[in-house]
């Protein structure tokens, strides 16, 4: 047994090596995906459309109710908190600005990404992890099929397509949430709130949210699948892979959000 200080240093070293190895694996996985994606782009017939539609349905249309509810409540909470503060200064109408910008630029894409992480990211990790436990991945490789093309590309494409659509739903219902607070709690005229929202928001704000949602979708799909492939070949391993997929996805989504916000700010938006 070494001293506690020596043990601590060893643990830090092991953890650092693990993170570094993980990053290397992630980069390799992204490289493999890029190669396969390019091949699919050149020959779209190689894409498994049936699976793609299935994942679109699972990650998109089935997620609409929860997205609507969460984003509506987010708009209500945001509007309520803004109203409480702004009422002190007699600037209630600016609730429309705050809710509109916050939902479109940040909270809409972010909340949709969180929901998608919980639903799709974990499902992807569990599905691929279970296939790995059942040696289905090994069978594919033995038969000469690239698992990425079969298993990852449909999921990734489905997420990239449905995530912006879900974000549109989330944005609209979030603004409606703020609208409800503005017209009921603050007593603002219906048209005044609407006109203010339309006046201050412009298409580029909306498009920035769309760009973010696409980036978040890629992160969710890639991390979910990667953690599935990295799962240990037992039931506990699949569970850990699922948890890790969710945690890593959320962590990377928040980092990506910060980076994108800085980039957009530098671009003047």
């Amino acid at each position: 047994m070494g001293s506690p200080a020596r043990e601590l240093v060893e643990k830090i070293g092991i953890a650092s090596a693990s993170v570094f190895r993980d990053m290397i694996e992630m980069v390799c996985f992204v490289g493999d995906l890029s190669k396969v994606s390019w091949r699919v782009l050149r020959k779209p017939s190689q894409l498994r459309w049936k699976e793609t539609l299935y994942y679109m349905d699972m990650c998109g249309s089935q997620a609409v109710p929860i997205v609507l509810m969460i984003c509506f409540l987010m708009g209500v909470i945001l509007g309520f908190q803004a109203a409480v503060q702004m009422r002190k200064f007699g600037t209630e109408l600016y609730v429309a600005d705050l809710v509109g910008f916050s939902i479109l630029k940040e909270l809409g894409p972010l909340m949709v990404a969180m929901i998608a992480t919980g639903r799709a990211g974990s499902a992807f990790a569990a599905e691929i992890g279970t296939m790995k436990v059942n040696d289905e991945i090994s069978a594919l490789e033995t038969m000469g099929f690239a698992p990425s093309r079969f298993l990852v590309i449909p999921k990734m494409l489905a997420m990239v397509i449905v995530s912006p659509v879900l974000t549109v739903f989330g944005d609209v219902i979030g603004i409606v949430g703020g609208f409800v607070v503005g017209t009921t709690m603050l007593g603002l005229p219906l048209m005044a709130y609407y006109n203010r929202t339309v006046e201050v928001l412009y298409p580029m704000v909306f498009m920035l949210g769309m760009v973010k949602s696409v980036v978040f979708a890629l992160i969710i799909a890639v991390i979910g699948c990667l953690r599935g492939f990295q799962a240990e070949c037992n039931a506990q391993g699949v569970g850990r892979a699922t948890t890790s997929a969710v945690v890593t996805s959320i962590f990377l989504i928040v980092i990506a959000d910060a980076v994108l916000t800085i980039i957009f700010s530098l671009m003047g938006y």
């Binding site: 049936k50 699976e51 539609l53 299935y54 679109m56 349905d57 699972m58 998109g60 249309s61 089935q62 609409v64 397509i161 449905v162 912006p164 659509v165 879900l166 549109v168 739903f169 944005d171 609209v172 339309v198 928001l201 412009y202 298409p203 704000v205 909306f206």
Partner: peptide, 29 residues
């Protein structure tokens, strides 16, 4: 493999697309 509910998926994509263009149009286009 379970197949996608094509009606639900179509409804989702169409309504999402329509909503997208409405939002773009209302917010300045």
């Amino acid at each position: 493999m379970i197949e996608a509910n094509k009606f639900r998926l179509g409804l989702f994509v169409i309504s999402g697309s329509v909503l997208f263009f409405i939002v773009i149009f209302v917010f300045g286009l």
